[in-house]
């Protein structure tokens, strides 16, 4: 079923991600990322924090964990109101595309229950499930999304050599696999216990600060 996974994880999948930088725009503006090495360090931190957390939520959703419980877990794992709003907006946009690609009453129910949008990672997991993908696929797609978006954003923001940027992503790929595996294991445990506690809750102080700071800017290239 890897065809559906490639589609879901493709940066061109029309789910709104292109307008978001995942904190990269604020990190660039703060002078903390200006070259490929800085990008690699940024992506490593993001992958192992919000990437891991999103991967766990996505895998749990794909594994059949109650979406309402996951929505609460995602809210609690996202203390920044700006990031909660972004996650729900992107969740809503992703759901729109997923319902057309993989019609499923569960997705319809999610849209009805969360008119303002469910969290992106939860939608991703349920979309994967609707596409008959496994929790591990959902985790991988979420982990990939957590680094792919900011990498593309940095290509645009910094005019980085695109070959260097994809090379950074390629070097990160083995870690991406590990993060997805860890998230999948934790999600299986959460599903077994019907308790979100085992799901990763990894966070990064600066990503929260960046999100709030960026949200207050009047002039910016990316929505987040």
């Amino acid at each position: 079923m890897s065809g559906a996974l490639l589609l879901l994880a493709d940066g061109r999948f029309p789910a709104g991600g292109h307008a978001h930088s995942g904190g990269a725009e604020a990190a660039v503006k703060a002078g903390l990322v200006h070259d490929a090495d800085g990008l690699a360090a940024f992506l490593t931190g993001r992958l192992h924090t919000t990437g891991l957390t999103a991967a766990g939520l996505a895998a749990a959703a794909a594994g059949g964990f109650d979406p309402a419980g996951l929505d609460e877990a995602a809210d609690a794992r996202t203390p920044s109101p700006a990031l909660r709003a972004t996650s729900r907006r992107l969740g809503r946009q992703l759901l729109r595309a997923a319902r057309v690609c993989w019609p499923d009453p569960v997705l319809d129910g999610l849209a009805a229950a969360y008119p303002g949008g469910a969290h992106q990672s939860v939608v991703l997991g349920l979309a994967a499930r609707a596409a008959a993908l496994a929790p591990a696929d959902a985790a991988l797609a979420a982990a990939h999304e957590s680094v792919n978006g900011p990498a593309t954003a940095c290509t645009r923001l910094l005019g980085l050599d695109p070959y260097q940027v994809v090379a950074v992503l390629a070097r990160l790929a083995p870690e991406l696999d590990l993060v997805a595996e860890a998230a999948t294991r934790a999600a299986a445990e959460a599903v077994r216990r019907q308790d979100a506690q085992p799901l990763p809750a990894a966070s990064a102080p600066l990503l929260d600060l960046f999100a709030e700071r960026h949200n207050a800017w009047k002039v910016r290239l990316f929505a987040s």
Partner: peptide, 25 residues
Amino acid sequence: GRLILDQQTDLGPGAPGWDGPAVLA
């Protein structure tokens, strides 16, 4: 009864990216 915050930070050697521009810089 409602979960309102669930947050883990992992800082220091051995925590991937901890010193980088996404975490502590």
